[in-house]
Simulated assay, not measured.
Amino acid sequence: MSDSFDCVTQYVFRICNEEQLCVHAGDAEHCEIMRHPTYERLRAKAIMMEGEPKPTRLWESMVAMGRLYDMRGDDKWRMIVLDCVISSLRGRSLRISRDLYVDLSDVRSDMFEAGLATWTETVRGVPPRRVPAVMRKTAIRAAYQRATDQTRETVFERPEDFLNEDGFPELSGLKASSLIHGADFRNPAVAEQLRGERNGALFHKNNCMNSVTRFHEDIRAGRRPDITARAAKAPMLARSNPFGPSHYYYISDFLPPFIGMPAAAEALGIPESAAYHMVRKGTFPCPPTRMGRSLKVPVRPLMHYMDIPDVIVHPDDVENGAAHASGLARQFRDPRRE
Results as ranks from 00 to 15, higher is better:
Pro242Asn: 06
Arg90Lys: 14
Val102Asp: 08
Asp166Asn: 04
Arg198Leu: 11
Ala147Glu: 10
Trp59Asp: 03
Leu163Ala: 09
Asn207His: 09
Arg280Lys: 14
Tyr101Pro: 00
Tyr248Thr: 07
Ala229Ser: 14
Pro335Cys: 07
Gln193Lys: 08
Leu202Tyr: 04
Tyr250Lys: 13
Arg230Pro: 01
Asp103Met: 15
Ser105Leu: 01
Ser105Val: 05
Gly51Ile: 15
Arg41Met: 12
Ser273Glu: 13
Arg124Trp: 13
Arg152Asn: 06
Arg90Cys: 11
Met65Cys: 10
Pro235Ile: 03
Gly260Gln: 12
Phe168Cys: 10
Leu237Thr: 01
Ala329Trp: 14
Asp310Trp: 06
Arg95Ala: 10
Ala114Tyr: 01
Asp27His: 05
Ala183Ser: 09
Leu58Asp: 06
Ala133Gln: 07
Phe215Trp: 08
Ser93Glu: 03
Pro315Ile: 03
Arg35Met: 05
Ser88Asp: 07
Trp119Phe: 15
Arg108Gln: 13
Val297His: 04
Cys286Arg: 04
Trp59Lys: 02
Ala231Val: 06
Asp307Arg: 12
Arg152Leu: 15
Glu157Ile: 02
Ile219Pro: 00
Met48Phe: 12
Lys137Asn: 08
Leu94Ile: 11
Pro262Cys: 02
Leu328Asn: 15
Arg124Asp: 14
Val313His: 11
Glu217Leu: 06
Leu202Ala: 14
Arg152Lys: 13
Val299Leu: 13
His36Asn: 08
Asn187Ala: 12
Leu94Met: 11
Gln193Asn: 05
Phe185Glu: 13
Asn206Thr: 09
Val311Trp: 01
Arg330Trp: 04
Ser177Ala: 11
Pro169Lys: 05
Glu50Lys: 09
Arg198Asn: 09
Pro298Met: 07
